[in-house]
Amino acid sequence: MYRQPLRALATGLALAVLSTGGAQAQAPAYPTKPIRLLVGSPPGAPSDITARLFADRLSQRLGQSVVVENRPGAGTSLAAGVVAAAEPDGHTLGVSPDTVVTVNPLVYPKLSFDARKDLMNLSVLASFTQMLVCHPKTGVKTAAELVARAKASRMIYASGGAGVPGHLAAEMFLQNTGARMEHIAYRGPAPATTAVLAGEVDCGFLATPTVLPHVTAGKLVALAVSSAEPSALAPDVPTLAKALNDPKLDISFRLLLQAPANLPPPIAAALEQAAGAIMTAPDVRTRLQALDLRGVGSNRQAAEAQVKADTARWEPVVKQLNLSLD
């Protein structure tokens, strides 16, 4: 009397086993070898430190070594180009600022790849901001004073290069306020900071961890941070939104985890989950705060939506600058 139910149960189990086996056969084994993680900044930069922290945790999670490779150049596009040209098997990844996708396609017309088509944005790992600082000789102590001074007299600001976050932050600041300042692009944030310290230029939007020691020492004056939220490193420095009474003024940037386009969905899902778990861990977030970074760890859908929104925000700025680099 139990023969039919038992037979049905056996058939169901067999189908389940076959189904599971089929799914396992279709899912690619990952990872099968060390993972390369390309970074477009030199060693010691906030994005490099973030990438190395992520690489260490990803290695622990996946049970395979993750090797960080620095390929600075072309506004961090050199590293992204290596990722775009790699086999889409999850063994070559990149950590890039969002400007690689939002700005660089407009600024570098001769790139060998299309960042908007050839890269998959798996996660926003972290967000970062810039601090507006000026040399004490300018006499300005607030962002509003700087706007007034820049409208009345000639002023110069420095950045770490054309099209980098500090340059973009300054130009959006100027466009929003109607102020005018001349731009001098240096070869990286270190010489740009040195120029502001020496009084060769008046001001600059630069990385908070880089300039904060000079602010503390009285060698630079901090006017504002570009994000909508105060900096954890400098909570007493107002945001631009507050300093200029413009709640919509948020000039933030993001670090993206990227892979070649056409990455198999199971591998993409595994990396999305890993990014979310790693970047939201309390100890990781604490370590990132020391670099003035905020851990995010979004999924791919949120990352792509953020990139789309940031592209729409930055394209008018870049086009107004008529900025194009070889």
Rank of each mutant, 00 (worst) to 15 (best):
R3E: 13
P5A: 04
L6F: 13
L13G: 02
L13Y: 00
A14G: 15
V17S: 12
S19R: 09
T20Y: 15
A23L: 15
A23Q: 14
A25G: 10
Q26G: 06
Q26D: 13
Q26F: 09
P31F: 06
P31N: 05
R36L: 15
P42W: 05
P43W: 00
P46D: 00
P46M: 02
S47W: 09
F54G: 00
A55M: 07
V66E: 00
V68A: 08
E69I: 14
A74F: 12
S77L: 14
L78P: 01
G81D: 02
V83D: 00
A84S: 02
A86Y: 02
D89A: 08
D89K: 02
G94R: 03
V95I: 14
V101E: 08
T102F: 03
Y108M: 09
K117I: 08
K117A: 15
L119G: 03
A126H: 12
T129W: 07
C134F: 09
P136G: 13
K137N: 15
K137M: 11
T142R: 01
A144K: 13
L146D: 01
V147S: 07
R149C: 06
R154M: 13
R154D: 15
M155D: 04
M155A: 09
I156W: 13
A158G: 07
G160E: 04
M172N: 12
F173V: 00
Q175I: 07
E182R: 15
I184S: 09
Y186S: 05
Y186H: 10
G188C: 08
P189F: 03
A198R: 14
V201L: 05
D202Y: 05
F205A: 01
A207Y: 11
T208S: 05
L212I: 09
V215F: 01
L220C: 04
S226H: 03
S227M: 08
A228G: 12
P230D: 10
A232V: 14
P238F: 10
T239E: 08
T239N: 06
L240S: 06
L249C: 07
I251A: 02
S252L: 05
L255G: 02
L256G: 06
Q258Y: 03
N262S: 11
L263D: 01
L263T: 00
P264S: 08
A270N: 06
L271S: 04
I278F: 04
P282D: 09
D283P: 00
T286M: 11
L288M: 11
Q301S: 15
A312W: 04
W314D: 00
V317W: 01
V317L: 03
V318N: 07
Q320W: 04
L321R: 13
L323Y: 06
D326F: 11
